[in-house]
Design a protein around this nucleic acid. Structure first.
Lengths: 106, 106
DNA sequence: AGGAAGGTTTGATGTACGTCAAACCATAAG
DNA sequence: CTTATGGTTTGACGTACATCAAACCTTCCT
C-alpha cells in the first residue's frame, strides 16, 4: 500500500550531513513547515509553495538522505515528515533548538 | 591594551547566519577546538593547524560576523573564543547540541 | 628608523550546489 | 489501452564560496 523511500539507518546519520542539509534557505522553510511532526503532502498546497517542483524534489532528497526526513509514497502521492524520534535519539536537543531558532526567522 | 574586533550584538545574531556559518567542514573543526570556551591563539600551534593562514582568517571572519565567536587582539596576536553565554541566551540548547554532535564526528 | 612577525585583505581560480526546463516513470482514471 | 497526473531524474546554467597567493598593515624588536 504505502512505500517508504530509502533513508539512512538511525545509527548512520552523520551530524555534518545534517548540518549541511539544514543550512539552506529553502530547506529551512521546509523544516519549519514540517515542525509539527506530521506527514505533509508535497503538492502545491503542501510543501510546494514557492519552489519549482524539481527544486523541491531535490531538497526533499537532500533532507531524506541526510536523515532528517522520511518520505512516504502512497500511489503517486508523496508525503514527508520529520524523523523526530530518530534525531532526538541520535542528537539530543538539536532538532528542538533548530526548530526554535528557525521559528523566529520564518 | 586588548582590542576586540567588531561583532554583532547578541540581539542581532540571526539563526540562519549561524547555521550557514556552522555548515562548513573547516569551521566545524575550528568550533570543536573552541569547545572548551577558552580563548585560543590563531597561530600554527593554535587554530592554524591544517589551514592556510588566509583561509583561516576568512573562516574566523565568517564565524565572528555570524556571532559565533569573539576575537581579541593583543598586540599582533589574535585570540578567538566561543560566545557561549550569548548563544545560549539567544538560542538555548543549540550550541551544546552542535558541539556534542561535532565531537562525535571529529 | 628599519626589519621581521602575526594576521588581514584583495584578487584569481576552481568547484560545489541551487535553480529551472525537459524528458521520464509509475500510478490512477476514463 | 490510452491519457493525464504527481513527482523524479537528467542536464544545463549561474552563482556563491572555499582555497591559495601575493600585497598590505600593525606591532614588536633591535
Amino acid at each position: 500500500m504505502a512505500r517508504y523511500l530509502e533513508e539512512p539507518d538511525v545509527a548512520d546519520i552523520r551530524f555534518d550531513d545534517v548540518l549541511n542539509a539544514v543550512a539552506d534557505d529553502a530547506r529551512m522553510r521546509v523544516l519549519v513547515t514540517l515542525a509539527d511532526g506530521e506527514f505533509h503532502p508535497c503538492g502545491p498546497e503542501g510543501l510546494l509553495a514557492a519552489l519549482h517542483k524539481s527544486t523541491l524534489s531535490h531538497h526533499k532528497k537532500v533532507l531524506r538522505e541526510a536523515g532528517l526526513t522520511r518520505t512516504k509514497l502512497e500511489g503517486r502521492n508523496y508525503f514527508v515528515c520529520l524523523r523526530r524520534e530518530d534525531l532526538d535519539a541520535r542528537f539530543p536537543g538539536f532538532l528542538d533548538a533548530v526548530l526554535a531558532g528557525l521559528a523566529e526567522v520564518y
